[in-house]
């Protein structure tokens, strides 16, 4: 048994395998299929200070090896979360991390302040990369100035571990990563979904109600691995890698490219027990390679 525990900022993870926001509900949706407390962490659904109904149906289009979504941050708001959902999930024995979103600097700050009050939420993931909302979201994540501004403002009110989720829809992701590191982010997670589009040729109409949406799933994995590798060379803070991870081998690619931890996202829909399979596979890999701690493998590519 290798040591799989890793640290992200002040967060101690029992293993580097977590589940991505928007793909795992609040964790409890998956509890019938697996012991969710075995995960290193669970990133719960994107939360905003005000409730949001999200975008109109249809919000999803399947693609080969992936899917497009345009959910648009549907959630019941941070107050509802604190009063009704938090009590249900706070005692799950893993890191329950809230993905925080906003439509302006003020709403990001307000939401982060509300979540900071919750003792058993040890970290937030600041979502500056949602491609499916008209205001805020990705608008902050595609320029260094926008990313810096929101991270700086949230850092002032949020003392616990702050992870910033980055958009791949940029010319150079390392510039954004450096900018948020400079404003005090404890970690960056990448990548959020890639902007895409699908057309119903019979109806001659876009499939998604919003025309464009976010692409995720195994089809984006090589892009995500490349961006993790580039970012690993650019920043000192730990990186959480995600984008199309389905198996332990995928997870290992991200870790070797420089990720300290990983998230499983869209693949949870195909195999709700994917997280457990990945944990077990990483353990076997470490044993097979005579590795005592998985931390030895972070960024450990042979050149």
């Amino acid at each position: 048994m290798a040591e799989l525990n890793v640290n992200i900022g002040k967060l101690a993870l029992k293993n580097p395998v977590m589940t991505a926001s928007g793909t795992f509900g609040y964790g409890i949706e998956y509890a019938d299929f697996m012991d969710i407390s075995r995960l290193g962490g669970i990133f719960v659904k994107g939360t905003t200070i005000q409730p949001r109904e999200g975008n109109a149906y249809p919000r999803m289009a399947e693609t080969p090896s992936g899917m497009l979504n345009a959910v648009g941050l549907q959630n019941k708001g941070a107050h509802y979360f604190a009063e009704h959902i938090y009590p249900e999930i706070k005692d799950i024995d893993t890191n329950m991390i809230v993905n925080v979103s906003g439509s302006s600097i003020e709403t990001y700050v307000e939401c982060a302040e509300k979540i900071a009050e919750l003792d058993q939420i040890p970290a937030i993931e600041l979502n500056i990369s949602c491609p499916n909302v008209k205001q805020g979201g990705m608008a902050f994540g595609v320029t260094c100035a926008g990313a810096s501004e929101v991270v700086k403002a949230v850092r002032k009110v949020y003392p616990k571990t702050m992870i910033v989720k980055l958009s791949p829809n940029v010319t150079d992701i390392t510039e954004i990563a450096r900018a948020v590191e400079a404003e005090g982010a404890d970690s960056v997670s990448l990548i959020n979904t890639m902007l895409g589009m699908a057309v119903d040729v019979e109806k001659r109409k876009p499939i998604l109600s919003t025309v464009t949406g976010g692409l995720s799933g195994p089809c984006v994995k090589p892009i995500a691995v490349r961006m993790v590798w580039q970012t690993y060379k650019a920043v000192k803070i730990p990186i959480i890698g995600l984008g199309g991870i389905a198996t332990w081998k995928d997870a290992m690619e991200f870790i070797l490219a420089g990720a300290t931890a990983i998230q499983i996202g869209t693949y949870n829909f195909v195999d709700p027990t994917a997280g457990i399979q990945v944990i077990d596979g990483l353990n076997e890999y470490c044993d097979r390679h005579g590795v005592k701690s998985i931390t030895e493998l972070i960024g450990a590519l042979h050149h």
């Binding site: 928007g22 793909t23 795992f24 509900g25 949706e29 998956y30 659904k45 109904e53 999200g54 149906y57 919000r59 999803m60 399947e62 899917m67 979504n69 959910v71 549907q74 869209t266 949870n268 829909f269 709700p272």
Partner: peptide, 20 residues
């Protein structure tokens, strides 16, 4: 649908009160 278990929020229908 994508997940089928209430996690992804893709399969929504609008209620009379305009909630998804």
């Amino acid at each position: 649908m994508a997940c089928g278990i209430g996690a992804c929020l893709c399969c929504v229908e609008k209620t009379k009160e305009e909630h998804h």
